[in-house]
Design a protein around this nucleic acid. Structure first.
Lengths: 153, 153
DNA sequence: TGATATTAGTTGCATAACTAACTATATGAT
DNA sequence: ATCATATAGTTAGTTATGCAACTAATATCA
């Protein structure tokens, strides 16, 4: 019974443990070795802006699964490094549109190559269908938790 | 080609994104709602001590995938809350053995139940064999990265 | 034995996370 | 038009993470 408890308790560490920590650290190290002075968290924000420039901070919260203060400070730090700038929305002055600078556009290909390379290293010996299954499981986990959150609130 | 890049880049967010964030937040919220004033990181340390009490800080680093300063400060905070105490090893005075207090022993069943309950919510609609596959994939990812780390260093 | 290297743990610094409380702007109801 | 409410973003406080540099204790070996 205790054994059963522990086995299930370990599921948390599976989802939130060794693999994600190891991948994050390796990606950060690969950035650093390439002389890139950005964190993976900053990179993940840039990543969404490369897909669609000029997103609001609120929209970045949704897409990166972060809360508002986290995005505020990530944008602060990205702005310090002149990688993005905040531009007030012309139609709603509450909204900051976050826009990439030329410096950030230059980082795109290098960093995405590094991310691909890192994931390739990480996924040696993992089949395509296994990756799809992990994605699908995680999508269900996310849906389970966010849907019940809304119910509960 | 850019599309291909982006699709692969997204793998990082799969491993380190929505699902793990959502599970961590839910577990933390469930602790809080139960009046438990510990963080999930503190809980993850206690979890390993419940399995084996009196581990050294170094051993806790290995088991929780954290670096030494992280463990130092987690133990600091756990000690402030009187959940663990540091005891110098009798055979090697460099080593701190971390021992659970009675207060921590009392938390064990409640928090493990909450973790089980949280994982049960998270895993609704996920088959046992899918969980096993995720575990297996993550183990390979971890091995890939830690083995090449040692090679490289 | 004595110099050197290794190991365990701590401290300082920067970034990031969550919560709660706040400001400013916009929306809606009366 | 006005007052209440909702939304976008910021600030403050606590905890956590990673790296680098440090101290203290032990191990190695010449």
């Amino acid at each position: 019974m205790i054994n059963n408890h522990f086995r299930r308790g370990e599921l948390y560490s599976v989802i939130n443990g060794m693999a994600s920590t190891a991948v994050a650290r390796r990606l950060q190290k690969n950035f650093r070795n390439a002389g890139l002075d950005i964190t993976i968290e900053q990179w993940s924000v840039l990543y969404h802006l490369w897909k669609e420039d000029g997103l609001s901070q609120q929209e970045l919260c949704v897409r990166t699964f972060r809360d508002k203060p986290s995005i505020t400070r990530l944008i602060d730090n990205l702005e310090k490094q002149s990688l993005v700038k905040r531009v007030a929305s012309p139609t709603d002055r509450r909204i900051n549109l976050v826009q990439l600078t030329d410096a950030a556009l230059e980082l795109q290909h290098i960093t995405i190559d590094l991310a691909n390379q890192t994931m390739a290293e990480a996924l040696v010996g993992v089949e395509k269908h296994e990756i799809e299954m992990v994605k699908s499981v995680f999508q269900r986990v996310y849906d389970n938790l966010t849907m019940t959150t809304h119910e509960v609130l």
